[in-house]
């Protein structure tokens, strides 16, 4: 005896799950890839997060920024996997072939940065991605990571120091 058919209602400016995910899934996959360093891990993390968001969409859209919610879940999933793995490196950066010699120096430098990314603790790496790819403020980064703002700053600062060291070492090695 069905006495009440239900359908999630949306209001103007309040997207449905389908509308939101269609607009955001590519960006979320890119974010997850940069955080995890792996296509497979990125897909898993995003799919898992979206599954949870889909189930709780009415609550998520009411109470929080869905993008921030998913980013946080992606980061937490990666942190958890990192801990489960005994803090081994989870993903090895893939060095893609470059087609033109003109960009060789740029690519090499970029890959040095990417190599360092792969060695960073996952929360530190996420902080870097949130800061320099997503262009978030430290307060926003702190909210996504669930840490104090000072911790978010510290993550970014340490990561940059590691990258500078790697870049200088690379130059030194010739």
């Amino acid at each position: 005896m069905e006495v009440g058919a239900t359908k999630e209602r949306t209001t103007a400016g309040d997207p449905s799950f389908d509308e939101w995910v269609e607009a955001r899934v590519a960006a979320l996959l890119r974010f997850a890839y940069l955080v995890t360093g792996s296509q497979h891990a990125a897909e898993d993390a995003v799919q898992s997060a979206l599954t949870r968001v889909c189930e709780k969409w009415s609550r998520v859209r009411r109470t929080t920024d869905p993008d921030a919610y998913v980013r946080r879940m992606v980061v937490n999933a990666h942190v958890s996997a990192w801990r489960r793995s005994g803090r081994r490196e989870l993903a090895v950066a893939e060095v893609r072939d470059t087609e033109t010699a003109d960009h060789a120096v740029h690519i090499a430098t970029g890959d040095a940065v990417w190599r360092v990314c792969a060695t960073l603790p996952p929360q530190q790496r996420a902080a870097v991605v949130l800061r320099f790819y997503e262009d978030l403020e430290y307060a926003e980064i702190a909210a996504v990571l669930g840490v104090a703002q000072a911790t978010a700053r510290s993550h970014v600062h340490r990561a940059l120091a590691a990258m500078r060291s790697e870049l200088e070492q690379e130059d030194h090695d010739g």
């Binding site: 890839y33 296509q39 970029g110 940065v113 870097v128 320099f132 790819y133 940059l160 990258m163 500078r164």
Partner: peptide, 16 residues
């Protein structure tokens, strides 16, 4: 360093 990080992340984001 920040410029290089942004460039690297942008490049690798395109790989996914």
């Amino acid at each position: 360093v920040e410029r290089l990080v942004r460039a690297s992340l942008d490049t690798h984001a395109g790989e996914v």
